[in-house]
Amino acid sequence: MIVGIPKETKPDEYRVALIPAGVEEMLRHGHTVLIEKGAGLGSGISDQEYKKAGAKLIDEPKEIYDQSQLVMKVKEPLPEEYPFLREDQILFTFFHFAASKELTDAVTKTKIVAIAYETIRDEHGQHPILTPMSEVAGRMSIQEGAKYLEKPMLGRGILLGGVPGVAPAEVVIIGGGIVGTNAAKVAAGLGARVTILDISVNRLRYLDDIMPKNVVTLMSNTQNIREKVTSADLLIGAVLVEGARAPRVVTKEMVQTMKSGAVIIDVAIDQGGCVETSKPTTHSNPIYKEYDVIHYCVTNIPGAVACTSTHALTNVTLPYALEIADKGYGRAARENQAILRGVNMVKGRLTNKAVASAFDMTYSTFE
């Protein structure tokens, strides 16, 4: 199979979908790999490294799409890429369809096979491709939150961990999954007072066992969220519903009760956001203020640490990409339930129930 790796076009996206070691592995399985020139530069990977690994360097993205049967990306295609997509082509990337009706409609019309990283789920209920990026995003949410709490960055002027005799910051994390857990680890390590809210008692019980004493767990309900949002210096939105739009659990009325200069990091923004006042931002223009609260809603947070993220992503995407390339998407999906769960669209048919429900569209089973 011919596998194409175009350069990412999303603003401030520096990751690339495959590292040279992945190219070598694809070639070992008998596949051809096309890499757009400059695709890896943002992750510190030169064209020469790809060439040495055996990839063919291509000048233009259209050539990649024209020649490739399987295209691997990091982020969803942008409008300028829609015309490149062709019927029956396999596109393997993060889509987050439920966050955008425009994207869903556009990709449906191309009649490609859309396999989404974020909905691949293994037999243990884990999301192996989403997990490392969630780990990065969770850790970075505290890093960014600490920065924007500084007064020159328009924040409250608070040191996350405080100092002897001065109280640390109050960090509230809504969602105790991979993002929330990693955010809590970093915040707790810096000495903040941390509260994690989640809807699962079992998850809270687990977190209570593994977290240090400066982390408190609370059941996620409207009353508890309302009370904790008011006291938060830094609020992390880490809510995930697989394949579906994130529920808006923090209302604008709640945001209005927050302290002047408090910071919201809505990590769920790539699934539509879990804070009502959130809207997508970029690394070039990452924040805005609403109700005197700083909102950081970058949709590709891990892209800022592209070298780390690219290697972590290839570690988990490559086994699935090899299986798809070796067997074709149909056989791969029938033989591997994880890949089957990743198939969101097939030739104009929507095969992900959560996305279909989000937009009241027709759902079709995979055949």
Rank of each mutant, 00 (worst) to 15 (best):
E123Y: 12
V3K: 02
E242G: 11
S231P: 01
K347Y: 10
A55Y: 02
P286F: 02
L91Q: 07
I236N: 07
Q67A: 15
G180E: 11
Q126Y: 06
G155K: 12
E36S: 08
F92K: 03
S46V: 02
I210F: 08
I158H: 12
L18R: 01
R15Q: 02
N182V: 00
L70W: 01
T222S: 13
Y148I: 02
P83T: 01
D105I: 10
A338G: 01
S231N: 10
S309H: 12
E24N: 03
P20I: 04
A184E: 04
V74H: 03
I287D: 05
A306Y: 09
G22T: 09
A306V: 07
T351M: 06
R248C: 10
D12N: 14
R205V: 13
K327D: 13
Y50S: 10
R341S: 14
L85A: 09
Y82F: 15
E150I: 09
Y320W: 04
I178S: 05
K52N: 14
D208E: 15
I265F: 11
D59H: 12
T217W: 01
G54P: 08
I269S: 09
K73T: 10
L240S: 09
K7G: 08
M361A: 11
I265K: 03
I120F: 03
Q69G: 15
D198Q: 07
